[in-house]
């Protein structure tokens, strides 16, 4: 039972991070390799708002969420917008550069010390006993619920929302979308904002659950195989991919060698790239578009 809980929690973490990769890729064909850094920035923003909204945790969290949305939009407006029309590789390398810059800045501002935003907000993190004998910490449970809500929300938004439909259209054919009067820059900015928002939420919840250090970015990178295994342009894919990667990691810890947990996501990724490079739920044409 505990094994199942562990798989669900880890998968939820990966899924919440992975949907950020998918959102941006689906709309603008850019792979955001700074996602791990943006996610950590979200966690540090929470730490900052916790200090300025002392005694009002709800306001602090709300402020951090709004700020992270703004960060994503600003990244697009001031940086990635300049890369539209450039080689895809150039855009990806720009995100790599952005990641490097952010990592440096975060250490400068918040140092490399271990931090506890949960403590700063005055939250306890008691474990909840589940029927069937498993246990889950409060924030891990919140994270699972958040992931479910985020995915549910995104499905509805992309299916029925006015801007969601625009985002899908821009992803399918930017030229036609632009001719139909869709403001591509606004759509891209929205994608970056939402992606950073979901990533930041993952960062905040992980930090609330178990503390915050500057090595969190690596977790962002480990979630990235999940997005690819499922198919970079598919949200369902990201969910399923996260489940596969999470399960593979937890099971290899439990039954094979805990050390393998570091490489297993990438081994699954390589296997997938050999067998079905466009991912489980991705569209095949994607391969030729990049």
């Amino acid at each position: 039972m505990q094994l199942a809980v562990n798989i669900v929690v880890l998968s939820a973490i990966y899924a919440l991070i992975a949907c950020g990769y998918v959102l941006i890729y689906r709309v603008s064909r850019v792979l955001n390799l700074a996602h791990g850094e943006l996610m950590m920035l979200g966690a540090y923003l929470l730490l900052a708002t916790a200090a300025s909204f002392a005694g009002n945790p709800v306001a602090a969290i709300a402020a951090a969420v709004v700020l992270s949305l703004a960060v994503g939009i600003l990244v697009y407006v001031f940086l990635m917008r300049k890369m539209t029309g450039e080689m895809v590789l150039a855009a990806v390398l720009t995100t790599v550069a952005l990641g490097t810059l952010l990592r440096g800045l975060m250490v400068l501002i918040w140092s490399a010390q271990q931090q506890y935003p949960g403590q700063a907000l005055g939250f306890a993190n008691p474990a909840i006993a589940l029927p069937g004998g498993g246990r889950i910490s409060t924030f891990a449970a919140i994270l699972v619920v958040t992931t479910a809500l985020v995915y549910g929300g995104l499905f509805v938004f992309l299916r029925f929302g006015r801007w969601g439909v625009r985002m899908r259209a821009a992803g399918q054919n930017p030229l036609l979308a632009a001719q139909r009067g869709i403001n591509l820059h606004a759509v891209y900015a929205l994608a970056w904002g939402l992606s950073t928002l979901t990533g930041s939420m993952a960062g905040m919840l992980i930090a609330l659950d178990s503390g915050l250090t500057s090595s969190m970015t690596v977790i962002g990178l480990k979630a990235f195989p999940a997005a690819l295994v499922g198919g970079l342009d598919s949200l369902v894919g990201a969910l399923v991919g996260a489940l596969i990667i999470g399960a593979a990691e937890v099971l290899s810890i439990q039954y094979i060698d805990p050390l393998l947990s570091d490489v297993v996501p990438f081994l699954v990724l390589i296997a997938m790239l050999i067998v079905r490079p466009w991912g489980l739920f991705g569209t095949r044409e994607e391969l030729d578009r990049v």
Binding site: L10, I253, D257
Partner: peptide, 20 residues
């Protein structure tokens, strides 16, 4: 001996093994 990679998203799987 549980050998844990430095940045780990969730320590629970390792802890579960120790407890079990």
């Amino acid at each position: 001996i549980e050998v844990i990679p430095p940045p780990t998203a969730d320590y629970t799987p390792f802890a579960t093994k120790l407890k079990d």
